[in-house]
Amino acid sequence: MFKITRSAPTLSQSFLEDESVPSVHRRHPDELSAMDIDDNDNDLGIGPSSLRKDIVSAGEVITSSKEFMRGHGTYVEDDQVISSVTGTIEKVNKLISVKALKSRYVPEVGDLVIGRIVEVQPQRWKVDTNARQDAVLMLSSVNLPGGVQRRKMESDALKMRDFLAEGDLLVAEVQAFFADGAMSLHTRSLKYGKLRNGQLLTLPPRLIRRLKSHFHHLPPPCGPTGVDIILGLNGFVWVSAGTSESQREGGEGFDAEGVYSNVNDDISPEGRRAIAEVANLIEVFAAYDVPLSDTLIADGYAWITQQRKSRPSSGAIRGGEAERMVFEVTGLDIISTSA
């Protein structure tokens, strides 16, 4: 069976025996059970010193290419596997790859992404998704008003700009890849489509983990209708005024005709404030390289509410207060690395 081991590079082969560091390789639960995992260490025992060994930089020799296969982030020269980026080593059986700490979004089929229309072309839209190439959204992969079963006609192709124009934001799923490596998106679900009533945040894609759901809702104490959050895997995050249960995902009050509306709903000042506070919260977490999750955002918002009760203040949290928030919510000690 497979084995996943976490290894630190040393000049000799000795790093194969070093299993003190857990893998950050993404694992599906099924995959986990199917694999014989050698990480029987708990993460508590890991100090920063053992993590540092795990980091390689460009041009650094990792191991011999005679015994190992090279994966992403590496190249082979003179029978040696050499890192080509700065990041952490990931090893699956004999495959060695290095995951860069910061990079553009690398798409995978099934990913939920948020993008911005940059161009309208015949039968398709070009969408900027923070990837290496612009994504393509075909006219045939969107739901048009009038129902899922509706046939697309020539008149629809002429009216494409009425549905999605340059600059519009949308949430979509990666459907497939073209031969040239560009991704094809689809919005053939009522969860997907044009975005309005909110604000976009651009974060490093590394901070968004694959979760069961990327649509989150903070319930009403947070603004009059709550706040909806969409965590796009490409690092784009959409924070918007909350919708009620029935309006979400094609419930009874779902307005299919309004899907391509260009007009924001009326949002009360309290609602706007809640959106701004949640956006601020997410940006603070991102500034401290904290990976996002729905529980983390909810905890952070609870912290803010708590603080506002004891010491009412307006305005964004920043500086020392932000540091304290990150510490108290995540337990992460922030060593000043500004030097």
Binding site: P22, L101, R206, V290, P291
Partner: peptide, 16 residues
Amino acid sequence: AAEVVRRSQAVIGVPD
């Protein structure tokens, strides 16, 4: 790099 890795792993724990 070490600092970034430390922070993200401290929050996630054993990742995923």
